[in-house]
Design a protein around this nucleic acid. Structure first.
Lengths: 184, 184
DNA sequence: TTTATTCGGGAACGATCATTCCCTATTATC
DNA sequence: GATAATAGGGAATGATCGTTCCCGAATAAA
């Protein structure tokens, strides 16, 4: 069942909510129509479950990327690098479900909007925390405003997913190199 | 007819492509079904026309924002500020059609993807040009890499539209203040 | 005045959508 | 070993989708 949800997640990421039909879903999940509706209340519930799964997975990946750095600044650098890599190639083309939900659904679907907001807020808090860690360990100057910088970095990461979906190439080292100036 | 297209543009921006039906379109445009199909080949053509209109309008607004600055650095600052303002409030909630098209359609619609790519490239070139102007007039240090910085700024602007659609508040002065560090 | 022509409106069409219903194996219970 | 319960599969259903077709009014041409 979890693998079926993973397959549904993939389709939702590629095509978005409205463009994926129940037929697309059942084909991807290798389940019959009735079986899907026995496991989920409706299409919206499948999407929500896929969203939760995606959000959890991405959070895990981001945190493990951060763990690769030995101080606040380096942890942040690895997080940004991880975002660039996920925004590129086949993974980038597949798209981010948070970005997709924000753009396609948050205007008309309050429950999705709440989940998107929560996810953005969590990410932003995580980044702000890394900045404060860096300020505590001396790798980031104390005059940097953690909250403002974190919010801008959220814009950067979400924006990378947009241009990655449009298939523009992103050079991780160069892009992150420039972005690290925000910590000066 | 142009005002009808403006109304169609509004609906597409709010709901996206797949979620707006011909019924929504005719209601917004105050035209009957037959009349829409007499003016446009199909729904896709309406969307494409709306996209062109939006792209042209936004380009105009961005250029006039740039004109408010007296040197390269200030022109760039005004462009970023204009982006933040357009990403906020009712305009932000309405969304950016370029971002929406990139996320919802560029994966499955080659002609839309080409238009999105072209628009992103145009914006990026415009920003890179402003950076070079700033370097020529002395307002931006020569060691700044115009292309890399422009690409990152595109990520920032596109990302602002995403978080603006999710209704997160953006403080223009603060956000742009941080972003201007990229020109140090 | 009569005839052509254009243009906006809306009913009708087939296709596809999300959802429900029912049937058939398979497992568990007695 | 018989029966109840469950789970999966797929056809049927009503609604809605994008699109086409045709009608009536208004204008231009004769």
């Amino acid at each position: 069942m979890d693998t079926a949800l993973d397959r549904a997640l993939r389709v939702f990421r590629e095509r978005g909510y409205h463009a994926t039909s129940i037929g697309d879903l059942t084909a991807a999940m290798r389940l019959a129509t009735g079986s899907v509706y026995k496991a989920f209340a409706d299409k919206h519930a499948v999407f929500l479950a896929a969203f939760e799964r995606y959000a959890g997975l991405r959070q895990e990946q981001t945190r493990s990327a951060a763990a690769r750095g030995e101080n606040g600044r380096e942890r942040l650098r690895h997080v940004l690098l991880s975002y660039v890599e996920h925004s590129q190639g086949i993974e980038g083309r597949r798209g981010c479900l948070v970005v997709g939900s924000a753009v396609e659904l948050s205007a008309v679907d309050p429950v999705i909007r709440a989940r998107v907001d929560a996810q953005l807020k969590t990410n932003e808090d995580f980044i702000a925390g890394l900045i404060r860690e860096g300020q505590a360990d001396g790798s980031i100057p104390g005059h940097v405003d953690a909250d403002d910088t974190a919010r801008l970095m959220i814009c950067i990461t979400q924006g990378m997913r947009v241009v990655g979906k449009a298939r523009l190439p992103l050079d991780g080292a160069r892009l992150v190199g420039v972005a690290m100036k925000l910590l000066a």
